[in-house]
Every structure is written in structure tokens, then in C-alpha cells.
């Protein structure tokens, strides 16, 4: 199976690990991520205002470029923006009409593409049971906390990713790799996001609470799908530390691909 793939800016530079391990694991699991020929930065934040049309264009172009079918994402922010702009294109007549006027394509785009997160491919197309069977190095004994953050889950009605308050997909993923998933209260609370540029103290307090909450329940390492969450957790946490990995890195490790891939590089 070949899926259209939207990597996004950060995955081509600062979050290469998120991307490389995802591609390697895909290959091992029998599917391929075919990068869109032409894509632009999604804009990183979803434009909330009804009249913010220009801010939706880049996402709409990438969605239209995927033609009919699935478009797979990895970065939480890209996924969030693409999924929500796609929902606007499908259900918000005013936005759809205005965006199409700018796109200037022959055929109008009205949200035909399905935006899938890589995790959703793993869960619904491959199956966590199947992944568990393919695991070569089970991560037995490792106590891993899933850090969902905000963007994958909310708003639940549009994202349709998981129960926004009691999510389970990452825990099921962790369990499939042989590790022990640990649930903690702050797994769906904000990391402080872009405040890292303007109010480092605030970000520090927020990720500090996340890590403290995880540690209290016995988490030894965190996984995330978001480069900014990962950065804030690693760099900004005040007076505390916790190893943080991208979920794909863990997947590659369990599938026995990590050493291989590192050697190649």
C-alpha cells in the first residue's frame, strides 16, 4: 500500500527522527509513504477566524494535491491544521468557495481527501496486534507515558482521533511494542507551545507540570508525535528532566530497525 505523505517543514530539519523512523517502520510493515511532489508549510496553527482565507491556502493546496485518497501526516500540528482546513473545505461553504477562488484549479476542492495520522494507519490499517507480532525487540519493562498534547485530540468532533479526555491509542501502541503504558493526568494538557518564544517561564511551568504528573505515576520516558511538544519537554522543563522520544523512534526500535537505520546514516 502506498499512501500520500505530508511530512511538513519541521520533519525535514529539526524533527528528522520522527520522519526517518516512520518511513523505515512503514517499509518493514509493508506500506510506503510517498511524499507529495509539491507541498508548502501548513501554517503551523489552524486559522480560527472565518475570514482568515489566505492562511488556509497552503493547507488547501496540499490537500488538493493529494487528489482523492488518503493523506498521511506525522506532526501533530500539520495533522491538526490539515484535518481542520479539510473539514472547512467539506462543510463550510463560504470558506470553501473563497479558498477555491484563490486556488484557481479547474476542479473545485471540497474536502475529498481523507487526512490520516500515521498512528491511525498503524491502528486501523495494519492493526496493533499485527505490529505486536512483528516486534523483534520487545520493550519489555519500560514504563512509557504517552504525551498527546492538544492538537491531535481537540476539537474531538473534527479531529475524530480518540476520546479527547480519555484517549487510548498511544497506550495501545505502547503496549503493542511490549512496553508498559502509564496513564497520567496531564497527558492531554498543553505543553506551552509557541509561548517558548515569548514567555519561556510559562512554557517551563506547563511542561514542568506534565513531567511531574508523569513521574508521579512512575513514567520513566515520554513519547510524543509533536516536535514542539518534544522540544518544550526537553528544553524548557523547569527543574526536572525526562527522556522524550518520538513514537516512531520507539516503533523502529521495537521492530529492530533502529540500529540498521543509524548504521546506514
Amino acid at each position: 500500500m502506498v499512501y500520500n505523505y505530508y511530512p511538513g517543514c519541521t520533519l525535514s530539519t529539526k524533527a528528522k527522527k520522527l520522519d526517518i523512523y516512520a518511513r523505515a517502520a512503514a517499509k518493514a510493515l509493508g506500506f510506503e509513504l510517498a511524499e507529495l511532489k509539491e507541498w508548502q508549510c501548513c501554517g503551523a496553527v489552524y486559522p480560527l477566524a472565518q475570514d482568515a482565507i489566505g492562511e488556509r491556502l497552503a493547507a488547501a493546496r496540499s490537500l488538493a494535491a493529494a487528489e482523492d485518497g488518503k493523506l498521511v501526516t506525522l506532526c501533530s500540528a500539520c495533522h491538526h491544521v490539515l484535518k481542520r482546513v479539510n473539514a472547512d473545505m467539506a462543510a463550510n461553504g463560504e470558506i470553501c468557495a473563497k479558498v477555491n477562488a484563490y486556488l484557481g484549479e479547474e476542479e473545485t476542492y471540497h474536502g475529498q481527501t481523507e487526512v490520516w495520522h500515521y498512528l491511525e494507519i498503524l491502528k486501523r490499517e495494519i492493526g496493533f496486534d499485527e505490529i505486536a507480532r512483528r516486534v523483534k525487540n520487545p520493550l519489555t519493562g519500560r514504563k512509557i507515558g504517552a504525551y498527546y498534547g492538544c492538537l491531535l485530540l481537540r476539537p474531538a468532533g473534527v479531529m475524530q482521533f480518540d476520546d479527547a479526555e480519555n484517549p487510548g491509542i498511544l497506550e495501545d501502541f505502547i503496549a503493542a511494542l511490549g512496553a508498559t503504558p502509564i496513564i497520567y493526568d496531564y497527558r492531554n494538557e498543553c505543553c506551552g507551545g509557541y509561548l517558548t518564544l515569548t514567555d519561556k517561564q510559562a512554557t517551563g511551568e506547563m511542561v514542568g507540570r506534565v513531567i511531574a504528573s508523569a513521574r508521579q505515576k512512575g513514567v520513566a520516558e515520554l513519547i510524543t508525535a509533536c516536535p514542539l511538544c518534544s522540544y518544550n519537554l526537553e528544553v524548557n522543563a523547569l527543574g526536572t528532566e525526562m527522556p522524550v522520544h518520538y513514537f516512531t523512534e520507539l516503533l523502529a526500535e521495537a521492530l529492530g530497525l533502529k540500529e540498521e537505520e543509524t548504521a546506514c546514516r
Partner: peptide, 10 residues
């Protein structure tokens, strides 16, 4: 190490 995502978002 700051991801582009942070700068673009801000």
C-alpha cells in the same frame, strides 16, 4: 534545536 513549528506558530 527550536523547531520551525514554534517560530511559524508564534
Amino acid at each position: 534545536n527550536m523547531p520551525q513549528q514554534a517560530i511559524v506558530s508564534a
